[in-house]
Structures are given as C-alpha cells and as structure tokens.
Design a protein around this nucleic acid. Structure first.
Length: 305
DNA sequence: TTGTTAGGCCGGGCTTCGAG
DNA sequence: CTCGAAGCCCGGCCTAACAA
C-alpha cells in the first residue's frame, strides 16, 4: 500500500488518475504512459503474437534460456563430501548442501583468458561481454566439471545473445555461432520454423530495433531504483511479427540481409554500421505497419530518455 | 578567481539467493 | 532445475572544499 500525493491543482475527473498528476514520481511500479504510448502499445498487443505463443506452437522450435550458472570470473570450489564443484560462496567457506567446511586450495577458476597450449581437458569459448551486434570479449571455459550447471551444449549453437542490461535504452543483442555464456546473457535460438524468412537473423533485427526497445521500456521498463533489465519472461512477452504475405517475406529477407551486413561492419566501419541500423529500424517499422508520426514519436522518446 | 583533488553519489554491471 | 528480485561493487562523474 502506497500513499500517493498528487500535485496541487490537479483535477480528478474519474476514478483513474493520470500518472502525470502524481507529485512524487519515485514510485517503483510506475510506468508513465500517455495517450500516444497507449495507442502504440495497444496496436502492437492486438496485432502481433507474443514470442511465448510462438514457442508453444509445435511448428516452431524456439529456445530461450540463460547461460552457465556461474559468475563471470568462473570461480568454483570443490566439496569432497558431495564430490562436486559449487560456485564459490561469498561468506564462510561452507558447503551449502552438506555444511562441510571447505578449504581455500580447493578453489578453482574455470574461466581463463587464454586457451592452454596443450589442454588435456575440454575447453570451449566463453562469451564474456557483448554489445549491440557485437561480441566484445571471448574467454575460455573449462567443461565437464562435475556439479557445474553448464546447461545443454545445444543452446550455445547458432543463436541470438541478449544481454540482461540495455544500452542507451536499446535492447542489446547479437548473434553467435558457438561459445558458452554467463547467466546474465540469454540465448535465444530459432531452431525450427515453418517460414524460412522467420529465422535468427530476422529476429535479431527485431530485437535490436527501436520499436521493440520502445515496447519493452514502455511495457516493463520504468523502475526508477531498479533500472530496466531484460528478463527472460519479459522477452517472451515481446510482440513478434511473423511474415505472412509475399511482400512481408521480402521485407523480412531485407531485414536479415541488413543484419548480416551490420554484423560484418560493426567493428570496422561505424558510419556504414549506423546507416544499416537506421535501415533496419525503417524496415521493422514497415513490417509492423507503424505510421510516420508514430515513428518520430518513438525515435524522440528513445533519444531523450 | 582559478586550479586541484578527494569524496560522495549514482548508474551500470555482476552475483547471489530464495522461491517456485 | 529455472528464474527474478535485489543487493553488492566498481568506476566515472560531479561537486565541494581547499590551496595557490
């Protein structure tokens, strides 16, 4: 229960209160929506199915899961009683499962900068940090440590990576063929789809688009104390356009092509990268059938926040 | 008045831990 | 096992305080 103070002079017309009338803005649950926002959100909600709905359909096979349940540093500790490795506890070195006291020299680091020269154990690439359309830093992770929750190796192949945190109000996603990720990066892969135009590249274009970021912020984003975080369950609620007509298939193909181009130039050519990203945004607006005024409105909003 | 620096604050990134 | 809430931590930026 929260006591909400209203600005002076604000008139109450009905039982509903527009959020702009609140005197104090600092409530955790608030998302400030005006008529324009509501119109756009309603339009998206009404006309497009959610990712969740696609995932439930049998024609589609879409995975969405976070990475290895381990810290980015990759520190683990061995418990001789459980005969298992666990993530390093913060406080006392005591096994959470069996309460056994653990000793400091059973600590191991399984994420390393360089692949050992003659590894007699299994290492795999580990994607350490990402940006939009870009993998920043890759390290290596030692596999097959008993007790570590690596998740299925299948989820780390040919899929979209989405960071838990946004960048400049934009969802931050890229593509990767292989490489494990930490728990704060999500793996989203279209493994099977009845429409060839609906694939990872197309979906990546959608994820990184202004439109979807706008939808995300307006629907789930506005905490003040807790800044926007992209959560798995929220990703499932994003409106996803499935290309249906001949024309839409073409558009979807164009998006995928542009995404491929961006992935190629993102590091080498900032200007070209920018141009392609603008192009992708336009194509996404096109395929979602967003009117011009609304495009401007969304653009303005994302820039000013 | 201007330059310098330390400390506080805040935003962003990471991790933990408990709930289901 | 999976997931999200929330706290911790770090670094950068801003500001206040002090020196020149």
């Amino acid at each position: 229960m929260v006591n909400i103070k209203l600005k002076q002079n604000s008139e109450l017309i009905s039982n509903s209160i527009l959020q702009q009338h609140f005197e104090d803005w600092d409530y955790k649950f608030l998302i400030n929506l005006n008529q324009e926002d509501i119109k756009i959100l309603n339009f998206l909600n009404k006309n497009f199915s959610k990712l969740r709905q696609l995932m439930e359909q049998s024609e589609y096979d879409i995975i969405l899961t976070r990475g290895v349940e381990l810290t980015k540093e990759g520190k683990i500790i061995f418990c001789p009683v459980c005969n298992k490795f666990y993530p390093l506890p913060t406080g006392k070195l005591i096994c959470k499962t069996c309460k056994q006291e653990l000793c400091t020299h059973s600590i191991e680091t399984i994420i390393v900068d360089q692949m050992p020269k003659n590894p007699n154990e299994d290492y795999a690439p580990f994607i350490y940090s990402i940006n939009r359309y870009q993998i920043n830093e890759t390290k290596y992770i030692l596999l097959k440590k008993r007790g570590v929750n690596y998740k299925s190796p299948e989820i780390y192949k040919d899929r979209i990576l989405i960071r838990q945190l946004t960048q400049n109000n934009l969802i931050c996603a890229t593509f990767s063929r292989n490489g494990y990720t930490s728990q704060s990066i999500y793996n989203l892969g279209v493994l099977k789809s009845p429409i060839p135009e609906f694939n990872n590249l197309y979906l990546l274009g959608l994820m990184n688009s202004e439109l979807i970021s706008f939808y995300f912020i307006k629907s789930f984003g506005s905490y003040k104390n807790l800044y926007p975080r992209i959560l798995i369950e929220k990703i499932k609620e994003l409106p996803i356009k499935i290309p249906q007509t001949e024309y839409e298939n073409k558009e979807a193909k164009k998006i995928a092509e542009c995404v491929t181009k961006v992935l190629n130039v993102v590091e080498s050519n900032p200007t070209l990268n920018n141009q392609y990203q603008i192009k992708i945004n336009q194509l996404v607006y096109d395929i979602y059938n967003i009117r011009n005024e609304e495009r401007h409105y969304i653009k303005n909003f994302l820039e000013k926040v």
